[in-house]
Structures are given as C-alpha cells and as structure tokens.
C-alpha cells in the first residue's frame, strides 16, 4: 500500500478517503470542543484572562457544557476510527516514520532559510514531528478531559494527572498545544495553498 497509488493518468492519490473524512469531522468536532471549552474556562478562569465571547460557543455556561459533552462523542468516536486506521492500517508508520531529531533539525533549518521543498504526499521531518505531537496532545486532552468529567469514577486517571486541580491545568495546556498546532497548520496551508484541494478530493496532479 504505497501512499501514492496511481489514480488517473498524471494524478496521484495523496490522502485516503478515511483520512479525509476523519480530518474534516475532527476539524468540526475540535472547533466545537475548543470554542465551548473557552466558554467553560471563562466561568472560572485559571489565569488572569478570559476568552472573548465571540470566540466561544454555547452562549452561557450551561449551553457551553451541553456543546462540550455532546461534541466529545463525535470527537472521540471519530478519533478512534482515525487512530485504528493509523495504527492498524499502517497510516502512521507510512506517513510519520522514520522520525529522528537529526532529520527534524535538518528540515527545520532548511525551512527557516526557505530551502525546504514541499512535496505533496510526503511529509518532511518537521511536519512529521508536528503531526505526532498534535496527536499526543489530542490524547492528552481527551484523557485529562475524562479525568475532569469523572474525577471519582475514573479516579485512577485523575490521580495519574496529580488530582483535579492539576488536571484542569493539564487540560488547558493540551488545548493550547492543539490551538498552537492549528495556527501553524493553517498558516502553512495559506503559504502553500495547493495542499488544500487534495485534502478534499484526495488527489493531486503529479509534480515533476
């Protein structure tokens, strides 16, 4: 199963259907989770700032929690499908490995000096690192979220994070990591717009 199988003459398949579907479902679920999460945060801010109302979802605390605990099912169900495909179907191995610090350093310095070529269908080491990191941040966000939702029934999880109050901060940090990733991800799509259509159609013209 090569990443690029011939689709039509002169076109290569870059993103399998399952990756495209889970990507966009995840984008929707994540936006719901983050915006409603910001409204929940605003009810009792951990830090000396709040999120502006226009950037939040739910209208009030009760509405925000309703959104958060509804979208979590979509996020988790979709995430499980993606993780199963990534782990069992070999998507992670094919797309994200190998990954070494030396390669990350090489590609990062190349990127910062504008010498890094973007090849559609192939992730450079910095991209691989970011994708792996955001997946781990996603796992952390879900695990800490479950620990906040059920600090008694899932107290092993709560204890793992160091108790309820520390878990709140872990959940916030996981969210921050994901939001940071999204900002970089969107900035890169703006810089290299030809990466967007294949995420919808799955294919792109061959580059020579």
């Amino acid at each position: 199963m090569a990443v690029q199988s011939i689709e039509r003459r002169g076109r290569s398949r870059l993103h399998p259907l399952i990756v495209r579907i889970t990507h966009w479902v995840n984008a929707y679920a994540m936006v719901c989770m983050i915006m409603s999460g910001w409204r929940i945060y605003d009810a009792s801010p951990l830090f000396p700032f709040t999120f502006p109302g226009w950037a939040t979802l739910g209208g009030w605390l009760g509405g925000a929690i309703a959104w958060h605990l509804a979208a979590m099912w979509l996020l988790v169900a979709n995430g499980m499908i993606y993780l199963a495909y990534g782990l069992i179907g070999g998507h992670f191995r094919r797309s994200f490995l190998p990954l070494s610090p030396a390669a990350v350093w090489r590609d990062l310095t190349a990127a910062l000096t504008f010498k890094l070529d973007h090849r559609l269908g192939h992730y450079n080491a910095v991209q691989r690192l970011l994708y792996v990191a955001v997946l781990l941040a996603g796992v952390l966000a879900v695990a800490s979220g479950l620990a906040l939702w059920k600090p008694v029934q899932l107290n092993f999880l709560s204890n793992l994070f160091g108790g309820y109050e520390i878990t709140r901060r872990v959940h916030f940090i996981a969210m921050s990591g994901i939001v940071g990733f999204v900002l970089v991800h969107l900035a890169l799509v703006l810089l290299v717009p030809r990466t967007l259509p294949p995420m919808i159609t799955g294919t792109a013209k061959d580059e020579h």
Partner: peptide, 19 residues
C-alpha cells in the same frame, strides 16, 4: 433570559460552525 440565550447562543454558535 438564560433559557432564550441557550437557544440564541446555540444558533449563533451553529452559524459559526464549519459544516
């Protein structure tokens, strides 16, 4: 007001969604 806000907030929120 809250009860109405739940509805309005939700529909406003829904408008901002990307589906």
């Amino acid at each position: 007001e809250r009860r109405l806000f739940l509805k309005n907030g939700l529909s406003l929120g829904a408008l901002t969604m990307l589906t």
